[in-house]
Structures are given as C-alpha cells and as structure tokens.
Design a protein around this nucleic acid. Structure first.
Lengths: 344, 344
DNA sequence: ATGAAAGCGCTAACAT
DNA sequence: ATGTTAGCGCTTTCAT
C-alpha cells in the first residue's frame, strides 16, 4: 500500500459554513426574504431575488436540510433496511428509482442478516424521523415497531412479511413459482424431482418447501428423501445434493429454493452440471452465461419496488387504511438447465 | 398481482410522537433532566433517573436525531455516493462496516452513473451536513465541490480520483494489475495478447489501457489491433472481440479491463470460452463456477473500504493535513481461463 | 443535583 | 412585497 502526498496549499483558509442569516446580511434583506427566495416563493420582487441569489452564490450558501426538516415536520427521506449495502436485494434499485420520482431520498442501511442490526437500523431511521421505512425483514418478531406503527410510521415489508405486527407487505408468489418449476420439470419428463432450499424458519423457505410438498403430493408421488430444507451452507448443500443424487432411484431434477443454494449446487456439480435438470428460485446475474444456462423462477423486482413505494405513499396519505399484502407474480425463464431430459 | 386486506382494528388511535417536553411533564422533572438521562449524564440522582426512564418507556419516546444533530453540530453520518444501490462497488460493504465501528451511519445514495445524479446526491449530502463523503466518482470535474472542501467537508474518492479539486483518494494499483495479468499470460506461452476495456475518458480505462500498451512495448511487441478501449456495450465488445479473434495472426489471449467487459466477452464466446485465454480486471461473484473458471485481477475491497474511512476520519481530525492518495495492491487469482495455453 | 433560558438554522403565522 | 416573531426538539451555558 503506497501513499503519496499531493500538492496542497498549506495555508488553505477554512470558511465557516454560511447560514441564512449571513445571506440576509450580505444581501441587505430580512431573513424571511432569503427563505422565500430559497423556497421559490413568487411573492418576492425580482430585484431582491437577484440580490439574494447573488449573495447565495457569493457565500456558497446551501440550506441546512436538518433545520428545514425539523421545521417543516417532514424529512423527504425514506429508510431502506437491506441485507447488505453492496449486494442488496435487486428490488432496492427499483425502490430507489420509484422513490426519486416521488421526490424522496433513500437512506439505506444494512442489516447484515442479523436481527439486532435490523432493529438498530430501523430504530435509527425512526429517530431520524424518516417519512417511511422499507424493510427486508430478518427478524420474525417486529413487536419493537409496534409503537412506531401506532404513531403512524409507514412501513412496508418486502420479500417477507413482518411478524407480530400488521404491516403492509409486498411478496412474490412463492407457491406459484414452485408450481411453475415443478410442472416445467414434469413436462420435460421428470418423475423424481427434489428440492433443496432455505431453513423453514425463514418465511420464503417455509412457503417454498410447503409448495413443493404440495406439488409432489398432487402429482401422486411420495416425498421421501426429496425435500431438503435447512440452513444454507456449503456442507449442508453438499450433503443434501449427495442424498438427492444417490437416492433410490436418484432424482433426475432439482428445484433450488434460493440463489445461494443454486450457486452452491452448481459449484458442487462443477463439470457434471448437465447431469441434473435444475430450476432455481430467484434469478441472478450470469445465470445466462453458465453452461447450461440456469433456468430460474424470476421475481419482478421492478414491480415489487414500485409497489412498495406505492404502498408507502398510500399509507402516508391515509394512516388508517387497512393493511395490505400484495403478491407479485413470478416468471419462469428457461435457459437450458431446466429443459434437460432425464437419462433414459 | 393479488391484493389481500388483512385484519386491522379500524379504530386504531394515532398517537402524536412524544417530545422530550412530554417526557419531562410525565416524569414531573425539568426538560434538562430528561436530556441528561437521555445522554447518560452521571450527575442525575438515581431516583430521578428511574422516574425519567419509566416515563420514556411509558411514552415510547425516542429522541429526534435531527434536532440533536442541529444542536450538537455533528451528524454522525457519512454519505456514500455509489453507482447503484442494489449492485454497489464491493468496497461499500467494507466502508459500511468500518463506518459502523467508528459509530457512524452510512447514508447511501445512488448516482446511476450519471454526472448530474452524482452532483445531486453529493450536494444533498452536503445539505444534510454529513460528517464526510465517500464517492465513487462519475464526474471528471468536481469543481462544484470546491466550496464544500474549502469549508472542511472531508471527501474521499474511491476507485477513481476526483477531478479539478484535490481530495483524498484510495485507488487500486491498476498498472501493477495489468502488468501481473500480462506477465501471467506471457508465462503461459502467449505472444499475441489483446486488451478490451473501458473508454479512456474514464480514469481506470485510461490507466489500464496505458499500462497495457506499456507492457506490450516492454515486451518488444507492437500494439496494432490489440488495444480496444471504448464504451462498454454489447455491440462494441462484440466488434472488438471479433477484431481480436480475426487478427493476423489472431490473439491467443485477452485481458478485459472491467467486469462488464469480461462478462460480455464470455457471453459472446459462449461454448467457445476455452478458445481464448482470458484474465479479467476485477473479480466478480461466480467467476469461480464458470467453466473454465475466470482468472482475475482482484481488488482488495476490504482494505480499500477501511482505508477510505481512515482517510475520512484523519481529515475530520485535521482538515489541513495534506491530501493523500493511497494505492492498494491487487492480486491475481488463477482459476483456469488465464492458464490456457495458446493453440500449437 | 436540578432547572430556567438561550439558541442551533430554518419555516410559517402574522403583521405591515 | 417585505419584515417581525415565534417556534420545530433538542443541547448547553449559567444559575441555584
């Protein structure tokens, strides 16, 4: 790690940040007039507007948003509690864009998949008096938010619902997705289809595993040795994959319940990836350039993000409206891995 | 998209958010005492502490951070202007963690790779009076920040330097990385090595292309038809790849200057990926499960992120310290694609 | 050990 | 059309 000191006028003078009062003095007008100009109030004479603008430029004045917020009562900011800042749920992009269109700033904080961090992040947002919160829940018990919800804080859960308190949520249609995957594989000639996915303590893990069991049952099969929910770790996925491949008879197709599992399975399979038909839940970048391409059930991030903001704004407008859960359809994207036929 | 209304006690009462004054009234003490308790001032009698705590709990009081910040003069927040919220530079995770350890909150805003958005985001952070800004520069001219820098706003550029104003920066060792990639390929028997990368108007594109040219020259070769910098689009990459493969003689190895290019090349190559030795600049998830695995020059995100926060804090402590540029070493990770030998 | 009062920088009644 | 004044919710002298 190399350091290099660059040129720097050592005698750089620090200027204190100018306030609105300074601008008023500079322009020779009242504070209120500056405020009017800053807020584009049309009732200011053009002459003064010019003078104030000049003063603002001369002093490099920028209003203090904290003071504005404090006084105005709204923050113009919504909080987003996401799992990881560098690799957030793709809906966050959509949330961000939709928020911008609603002239709202997004304050993103990471939860690192830890309940306590989630709580810290969300409470910090509340203390900042954000105008609403989008949360990708980690915790299963959000009682700690009861007071906030009661005092009208709009909160929208994404991907998973909140627990213990009623809040708006926008979820993907997990059951339909698993159904699509299952039928797709059956259609391609598979009879022994297995499932490896998240721990059933996690909402999506629970929903997807349950949907899978229902599919097997509806198809008149038995689920013995075919369903492998659990914590996603290389070892566990490896063991589950092993059980699936060495079953009697072995499964010829696999549904993976989340991206981490899909990737771990592919990593494990390596060169033998073509040996097993695979449909993964949730799309991921590069799924199309793997060989074979990975067939996935894709969530509609754009719609989810937009819907989340809509629910947020609706609740802001009417804090007493009934709580809503919106389910967004998913889509099967065939890319090769899900279209593999079983060996004869 | 299905909607479902959930149970909701229609007559839910909205409680106004309690202020410190409310807590004081509830506890029967002065405002100042509540403030003391909230800030863990030890000079409050244990009896009153208990009473105040009880009132805080009873009212579900949480201090308004905006007001605290306004009064205290610091925000406890640093801004991070990143390209995209859902797919930020991996250093952001490291920044986030390092910031948390420094008891700072990260306010992330996206620039969407647009200069104007960058400016909006950064200025918005300034108006929020954040304690510092981490920026992944899009713009090449940051004169608009001159006043802020002058009034002491700590600003650290990551991955690329700022333009037009002197600011701290932490950069990867682009030249060394290209050098490592080039030597690695030479070592594996390649004589015709090509480069496809970013537009040279972008800092990293410029540095990497220049380093590549230097390598070719040092190796006694000519660069005719081997260097293809430019805007990263599927068409342009396809054309460049075509030129590389149909050269006379064709190149047997390729260095790609960024992840987008690497992926576009792999997508284009498809099943023929084994035909060309490839070393990509910047690591990416799944590089290890592609076949062959993709050999990359990896940046040390953790170090970059930590260093960025260090520079930020150092400047906060001493706004007059000389501007520093820190260069962080990169690493070559062999995974297969870079170890392919040229056809005989 | 506790409290009264003065702001932080701004907006919004309410004059004029 | 412009200015005066009272807060937003908090921290912080300065008394007591």
């Amino acid at each position: 790690m190399t350091e290099r000191a660059a040129e720097d006028p050592a005698a750089r003078r620090r200027r204190k940040r100018p306030t609105m009062r300074d601008v008023a003095r500079e322009a020779g007008v009242a504070l209120r007039t500056v405020s009017r100009v800053v807020n584009d109030d049309p009732t200011v004479g053009p002459h003064l507007v010019t003078r104030v603008r000049a003063a603002i430029t001369a002093l490099d004045y920028a209003p203090d948003e904290r003071a504005q917020q404090l006084r105005r009562g709204v923050s113009g900011t919504i909080g987003a509690a996401v799992r990881n800042l560098a690799d957030a749920h793709p809906v966050l992009s959509a949330v961000d864009q939709a928020a911008r269109q609603a002239r709202l700033t997004v304050l993103a904080m990471s939860t690192e998949d830890e309940e306590e961090r989630e709580r810290e992040a969300v409470m910090s947002m509340c203390r900042r008096r954000v105008d609403g919160i989008i949360i990708e829940p980690i915790s299963t018990n959000h009682q700690y938010l009861a007071a906030e919800l009661e005092s009208g804080m709009p909160l929208v859960a994404v991907d998973r619902p909140t627990g213990g308190v009623a809040a708006d949520a926008v979820l993907s249609d997990n059951a339909a997705g698993i159904g699509m995957a299952f039928r797709h594989l059956v259609l391609h000639g598979h009879h022994r289809i297995a499932y490896i996915g998240d721990d059933e303590r996690i909402f999506t893990g629970r929903e997807r595993a349950a949907a899978f069991r229902a599919c097997v049952a509806a198809n008149g099969g038995t689920i013995d040795g075919l369903v492998h929910p659990g914590f996603v770790s290389p070892d566990r996925v490896a063991a589950a994959l092993d059980a699936v491949l060495r079953g009697n008879p072995p499964a010829t197709a696999l549904i993976t319940g989340n991206v981490a599992t899909t990737i771990e399975v592919l990593r494990r399979l390596g060169a033998e990836a073509g040996r097993l038909a695979i449909v993964g839940f949730d799309d991921f970048p590069l799924a199309d350039i793997l060989r074979p391409g990975v067939t996935v059930i894709a969530q509609d991030s754009a719609v989810i993000g937009r819907t989340a903001i809509e629910l947020l704004l609706a609740r802001t407008a009417d804090p007493d409206r009934p709580v809503r859960n919106v389910t967004v359809p998913v889509e099967l994207i065939p890319r090769g891995s899900g279209e593999l036929r079983p060996p004869p």
